[in-house]
Nucleic acid binder design. Structure first.
Length: 426
RNA sequence: GUGGAUGUAGCUCAGUGGUAGAGCCCCGGAUUGUGGCUCCGGUGGUCGUGGGUUCGAUCCCCAUCAUCCACCCCA
């Protein structure tokens, strides 16, 4: 009988970590609001067919990484391996993109059955941003600028690089695909097993291979960027110009094809070298064909997914988490003796009524005065309020500054609200 | 799915074929109502799990599970 423990690759978020997550989540929520994006939430579980059709049968995600099982009614369901498909489904189902544009975001857990390692988990969390019914390069630029600002606000600008590519339209890609297959077929003897399989299923992915024995051959392969249709080319040029004008640096990576089949035209990734082999922090692109593919009207769309675990890992590795995120208390109220313990609870409530932003913890469980003050210190609070027999007698309360060289004072309880407001700048 | 490393106290780790130790944390005391530094004491362990070898296994062997890292892939 094995011990009860978390499922492999699925982690608990404990109190020492949650402040960092809140910091990250608050940062991006504030930012998205500033750009006028709205939140949507879709279920964790969807029909399996949704992901098979949108992500693509030949992708790694669909082939071997999905948490798929039969619901009680026999229908095949899948825990979302990414957000886009579910959001698209919701947008179609509720007609959100019917003659209107949408700028949306969502966040939560996603699931992929992979071997866990640093920065890679079976349950992980993403921020996903999705935009519908805007086809021009202006929105591509806005989306990338938004991601750039988010990384900048977290202090990561110097730690990440923006990689950019264009995959052209579906038609241009089909033509290029034929050219590429012809080239790859001519070099069959160099292809490894995986690439041979992809030659028929998804030849563009062959370009992504890191097999050094294929590097020379791939370097000579025809490039998608040289086979773009005129419109995609103009789109890409305009996007690059916008990024240049706004001072966002990028590198063109003609090999960037991304692992999900639905992308067209613009694709991009923010990568880092600080996280070992899991270098992608954020990735996205245009998926103009997906809405139609899933039964909606033709609707241009673009979006990105950002990995929160990797972002947090990066911030911690680089020591970029502001110390203030861990300060969760202003005041620790001690209570020594039976009478003080009885009075402390209503006092704490009165303070919380009067000072809504006050973060106050009441000491519970008794113990010596010494141990209570020790706990006040360990709690991280700036101020300890001391309530004992003497204070109860006189209607006062002791106010002790735990982080500064200041005399301890004893003030009337009636003056406490005003005093705390002053001290804490509330 | 493949390869390598590692599983001993809440945490970080020593250790030995004869049923276990340190530091940190936590609790108490030195200081009958005052934290941080110091000193003293204390709580806490099926030595991942199952099997095998042995008089005897935490140690040796096998299996299994988990964690970490890498391949692969991506967030």
């Amino acid at each position: 009988m094995s011990k009860l423990q978390a499922i492999r690759g699925m982690n608990d978020l404990l109190p020492d970590q949650s402040p960092v997550w809140q910091y990250v989540e608050n940062t991006f929520k504030r930012l998205l609001s500033r750009y006028g994006y709205l939140e949507v939430r879709a279920p964790v579980l969807e029909q399996t067919a949704l992901f098979r059709r949108s992500i693509g049968e030949a992708t790694d995600v669909v082939e071997k990484e999905m948490y798929t099982f039969d619901d009680r009614n026999g229908e095949s369901v899948t825990l979302r391996p990414e957000f886009t498909a579910g959001i698209v489904r919701a947008v179609i189902e509720h007609g959100l993109a019917h003659n209107q544009t949408q700028r949306l975001w969502t966040t939560g857990p996603v699931f992929r059955y992979e071997r866990p390692q640093k920065g890679r988990y079976r349950q992980f969390h993403q921020l996903s941003v999705e935009i519908f019914n805007l086809e021009g390069p202006d929105i591509d630029a806005e989306l990338i600028l938004l991601s750039a600002r988010l990384l900048r606000e977290l202090g990561l600008s110097d730690q990440v690089t923006l990689e950019l590519n264009s995959l052209g339209t579906k038609e241009a890609r089909a033509a290029y695909r034929a050219t590429l297959v012809e080239y790859l077929n001519a070099h069959r003897e160099v292809l490894d097993e995986d690439s041979l399989r992809r030659l028929t299923t998804n030849p563009l992915r062959v370009l992504d291979s890191k097999n050094p024995e294929m590097a020379a051959m791939l370097a000579g392969a025809p490039r998608m960027l040289d086979h773009l249709d005129a419109e995609s080319e103009a789109h890409f040029e305009r996007l690059k110009a916008s990024l240049d004008e706004t001072g966002v640096r990028y590198v063109i990576n003609p090999r960037l094809v991304r692992g999900l089949d639905y992308y067209s035209r613009t694709v991009f990734e923010w990568t880092t070298t600080a996280l070992g082999s899991q270098g992608t922090v954020c990735g996205g692109g245009r998926y103009d064909g997906m809405v139609e593919e899933l039964g909606g009207k033709p609707t241009p769309a673009i979006g990105f997914g950002l990995g929160i675990e990797r972002l947090v890992l990066l911030l911690e590795t680089l020591e970029l988490v502001p110390a203030s995120v861990h300060e969760h208390l202003d005041v620790y109220l001690t209570a020594l003796g039976e009478r003080a313990q009885q009075r402390a609870l209503p006092l704490a409530e009165r303070l919380r009524d009067a000072l809504p932003s006050l973060r106050l913890q009441l000491h519970c469980g008794g113990g010596s005065f010494k141990s209570q003050i020790k706990k006040a210190d360990r709690s991280g609070a700036r101020i300890a309020l001391l309530l004992g027999e003497e204070e109860c007698e006189r209607g006062t309360v002791g106010i002790k500054f735990l982080r500064e060289e200041r005399e301890q004072e004893n003030i009337p309880q009636a003056a406490l609200v005003e005093r705390l407001a002053l001290e804490l700048g509330a």
